[in-house]
Design a binder for these strands. Structure first.
Lengths: 240, 240
DNA sequence: CGAGTTTCCGTCAATCTGACGGATAGTGGG
DNA sequence: CCCACTATCCGTCAGATTGACGGAAACTCG
């Protein structure tokens, strides 16, 4: 510990977003094609450096999300995921990335931020196959795992759904994110029984052939009681 | 987005530790008394800035932990908690703090780091009452909440215990961290039944009056199946 | 050897879970 | 108008899990 001559190292702080949604019966993530080196042309998570030394980190995440998707932070889920700080991430200078997880419903994708690098939805399975910039492959894994876990004991699943949705739509979210079939009738019993999870609107869908489904809105609860646990096998599959 | 004249802001990155243990039948946290401004004299989480621009963030956490407690990272739990980055945390310059949660057993506390500011154990309840430096009060709340939650569905509780421990000791960990009484016989049945949670050593305690308790070691599992859920009331108490 | 203490095994009712039969309420075709 | 067809939703029922508690086992101490 030599006190002399030591100065606090300067670090560049980036804020990246892992934005998840369910589209076309698949779990998808928002990615951009990088326009500059390093990793020019590779797919990467949307994000960027702090706009100024005074910008709040959470605020930067909200700003990036608006820039990339046009979505405001009000009616979507946004939480900090983790900070990634291995020294050799960027050859230019020391960079650490504070990563956020966002969960958005399918429908509203204007995505006209005015940014040059257009973001697009990529199925997670596909994204994890191909090469990604930096350590973004690992970040995506972490984001998906966080989402999978939170479906169990929080009401996060409703963030994948539009404002009004049916029990079947909600079940599809669970099935797609977990990659696991769920028994429709038991699922129905559990989610309608959980305190504050769903609020019936009284409305019904008039859609396709079949009995019209009742429409629900998100309830006030954020924690799920009782929890909705996935199968043992499904939980372990990640660690492997 | 004016491209001209803009440069990536320089930020100072600190790594702070929330080190939890169970001592004297209380959940306690390791704190230091600050020797310098700002918040001179106030209690704060141990931590410091990156040692160099090349130091890994996780590595810095391990280093800090060794400096403050003398503990090596091998047989203890260390995970990233969250990054705190509000702009006005430090009047001197822009600082963001990557915070780690460590869980250590009671016994081994040499805590001879050679650092001038000696760290000491403070009961969490007491720490949250008194004034703390920066936003450390909030960080401690987050750390405790993370630990409480993880006791439910991971094997984190064993990190509070020495290498060999009894079921009763393990139960005390749950009771103290959750602040909730548990039924001893049902607890025994559950933890001994959970796959890979506990491995019997065959040894028994010879201690105090009463039937000798069997000794266990940590099992290979990190996820708890089936989970050990706290009561509804206990879970909600945090949100309030 | 008995009282005290702590660990651990067993029981039993209430609850929860998974699996499934079948009624309900729409659509579209003849 | 009646009959498939489809999808939602309600009910049942056996098996597993949970919470609550009685009581035996295994030690110490006096």
């Amino acid at each position: 510990m030599t006190e002399e001559e030591w100065t606090i190292p300067d670090v560049a702080v980036a804020v990246d977003l892992a934005v998840l949604t369910v589209r076309a019966e698949q779990l998808q993530i928002l990615l951009v094609e990088r326009g500059i080196e390093p990793f020019r042309g590779a797919l990467a998570l949307p994000g960027g450096f702090l706009a100024s030394a005074r910008e709040d980190i959470d605020g930067a995440a909200v700003r990036e999300l608006a820039e990339e998707t046009g979505l405001a932070a009000e009616d979507l889920h946004l939480e900090q995921l983790r900070t990634y700080g291995t020294p050799d991430r960027d050859p230019r200078r020391r960079v650490i990335t504070v990563c956020y997880l966002a969960v958005v419903p399918n429908l509203p994708v204007p995505r006209a931020g005015g940014d040059a690098d257009v973001a697009r939805w990529v199925p997670v399975a596909e994204a994890l196959d191909g090469p990604l910039a930096f350590d973004h492959s690992r970040i995506i894994s972490d984001a998906v795992e966080r989402a999978r876990g939170k479906l169990e004991y929080t009401t996060l699943a409703t963030a994948f759904c539009p404002a009004e949705f049916t029990v079947t739509e909600l079940r599809r979210v669970y099935e797609i994110v977990w990659g696991e079939q769920l028994e429709p009738r038991n699922f129905h019993r559990k989610v309608t029984g959980a305190d504050g999870f769903l609020v019936p609107t009284g409305e019904k869908t008039l859609r396709q052939g079949g009995r019209p489904a009742e429409l629900y809105r998100r309830g006030p609860a954020s924690l799920l009681h009782p929890a909705l646990l996935r199968s043992r096998a499904s939980s372990l599959e990640v660690t492997a």
